[in-house]
Design a protein around this nucleic acid. Structure first.
Length: 517
RNA sequence: GCAGCUGUAGCUCAGCUUGGUUAGAGCGCCUGACUGUGGAUCAGGAGGUCGUUGGUUCGAGUCCAACCAGCUGUACCA
């Protein structure tokens, strides 16, 4: 006999279902972050999850791989009002960050916005790439951006707000750090070693990628990547930038003491600007962007310093690179310093949970006039995973509703009335809607729902005008001391009777006793 | 993309080295002891194309190959 082909229920990889605990945790985090951003004066704005592909940046889908990195599809709804060539064919994409859509929004509504335009938004973004631990194809970001302000004060604010947000989320000072760098400084270094100019663009990318790996792989690996290349433990070979020894030496020296002596303690932003400016200035020589980058860094250092944000919160880290695409000035990254182990005992490094920077070119792509902008983004999903793992989130199970049990099938209306009375008093409550044949099952159900108590009214209680209230929280405690079923049934722990008219009041008292009101 | 590891019950896994009646365990689930009371205990029960296809063999969960899927690392990452 042919077996019916059952459809296999399965979640697409890189996506996650989320239960009540995770949803509650996200809601709590979002609310915390929102309050900090509001405090800094940002206002909310929301854009859709789908944009025209060309508005999102460099990822124009090509014929072979229209979905490389980004989920894309062609619009087939038709727009007959427009010319035929524009109809049916336009590429749409799910957004892969919140910055590009904001740039589109600002450009489209430029006249109506008060500049500098300061806004925040959060939502799901999508990346069509291989997922990994803590890396999903759908995840949540929470962004804040200031558009139309060239001042370094706007960048300094982003850094301070990042620090404030971490602390508001319960991460103690010292367990996170905001790391600042400047793309112009990186450009300056590369100019200094003679790989400026259009013809070296590819090489510069390789160099930036190598620098970006300093944290994860260490200075030795970075040296290899700047030179001929590196073979990792799996035997895979990564091609290097093929710089000569002197060029490599210059970059390593730029990366600073921490990599040269193997220390991981970053320099304080203040110290970096004061102590090393001479060194850097020499290094960059005539490189204008390098000098400008240093001066911008110093400006940010002065601003955050004046507001009392010391090196325990914001530091300079010459290895911070961020995205390769659109950043033009200061870049920042928030790193969790908390060390912990996963369930298999392996050490886990959370790394970056947020970042951002100045993207002076992104809005002006649409405009034909320069529009400076800077922004900061928190990886909510990633940060939530980290906070959950270190036990700062989602530890407690959500309390369920009060369950009113069905003793006599004929009297469901009576029970429903009790439920309504509880709800009237703003107490979460529900009628047992399953098969009431087996009374034990009703209690099992209430137990699994994590209900604080159940309400019971059988014939005996009904005759006396009473109801039984069974405290499941107290009962669970009592159960530990009881060995046999007989004893359990005789003592009936944590259960009491009350007048039917007192039901709401007694339940309210019970909830208050457990701190659930 | 590259490399390594892993696919056996709803879940976690044993069995594979050395091929041989009917493929096991724990947990979970269902039923009963207990027709008015959950989490304890005991007894019983259901649940498997052993990832797929092909090959070797008298005989394959076990050996071989290809493919598929998953995990881990690495590359890319706006």
């Amino acid at each position: 006999m042919a077996k019916p082909q059952k459809l296999k229920a399965r979640l697409p990889r890189g996506f996650a279902d989320r239960g009540p605990a995770e949803i509650a945790a996200t809601r709590e985090m979002v609310e915390t972050i929102r309050k900090v951003y509001e405090l800094y004066g940002f206002e909310p704005v929301e854009t859709p999850m789908i944009e025209y592909t060309d508005a999102l940046g460099k990822f124009l889908p090509d014929q072979d791989r229209p979905n490389e990195g980004v989920f894309s599809f062609q619009d087939d709804t038709g727009t007959s009002a427009i010319a035929d060539v524009q109809k049916d064919e336009q590429w749409l994409s799910l957004r892969y960050d919140l910055t590009a859509p904001l740039a589109r929004y600002v450009a489209e509504n430029f006249q109506h916005l008060a500049l500098p335009y300061r806004s925040y938004r959060y939502g799901w973004v999508f990346r069509n790439e291989k997922p990994g631990p803590g890396r999903f194809r759908q995840f949540m970001q929470f962004d804040a951006d200031t558009v139309g302000a060239a001042s370094m004060a706007a960048d300094a604010e982003m850094c301070m707000m990042a620090a404030d947000t971490m602390e508001a989320l319960g991460i103690p000072r010292g367990q996170y750090v905001v790391k600042v760098n400047n793309r112009k400084v990186l450009d300056g270094v590369m100019e200094a070693i003679g790989i400026g100019g259009e013809e070296n663009a590819g090489k510069r990318l390789t160099v930036l990628r190598a620098i970006d790996k300093l944290d994860r792989l260490g200075p030795q690996a970075v040296k290899q990547l700047l030179g001929e290349g590196r073979k990792d433990e799996s035997g895979d070979f990564t091609k290097g930038a093929n710089l000569d020894a002197k060029q490599i030496e210059t970059i390593i020296s730029y990366l600073g003491v921490k990599s040269a002596i193997g220390s991981t303690k970053p320099l304080a932003l203040q110290a970096a600007s004061k102590v090393r400016i001479a060194e850097w200035a020499e290094l960059f020589g005539k490189s204008e962007s390098g000098q400008q980058g240093v001066s911008e860094l110093r400006e940010i250092a002065d601003l955050v310093g004046a507001s009392g944000y010391g090196e325990d919160r914001i530091v300079c880290d010459s290895s911070v690179v961020r995205g390769l695409e659109y950043y033009t000035g200061p870049v920042y990254e928030v790193e969790l310093l908390i060390e912990t182990k996963d369930e298999k005992g392996r050490p886990v490094r959370f790394g970056s949970v947020g970042g951002g920077g100045r993207y002076d070119g992104l809005v002006s792509r649409f405009m034909g006039q320069p529009v400076p902008a800077t922004g900061f983004s928190i990886g909510v999903s990633r940060l939530q995973a980290a906070l959950t793992l270190i036990g700062k989130l989602g530890a407690k199970k959500e309390t369920g509703p009060v369950v009113v049990t069905v003793f006599d099938k004929d009297r469901i209306a009576d029970y429903q009335k009790m439920v309504a009375a509880l709800r009237e008093a703003n107490i979460r409550a529900e009628l047992y809607l399953g098969n009431p044949k087996n009374f034990g099952n009703q209690l099992k159900y209430a137990d699994r729902r994590n209900a604080p108590c159940v309400v019971i009214q059988g014939g005996d209680e009904k005759a006396k005008g009473e109801v039984q209230i069974k405290d499941l929280i107290e009962g669970a405690k009592a159960a530990a001391a009881i060995a046999s079923n007989e004893e359990w049934r005789e003592t009936r722990p944590a259960q009491f009777a009350c007048k039917e008219s007192e039901l709401v009041e007694k339940v309210r008292e019970l909830l208050a006793r457990h701190g659930l009101d």
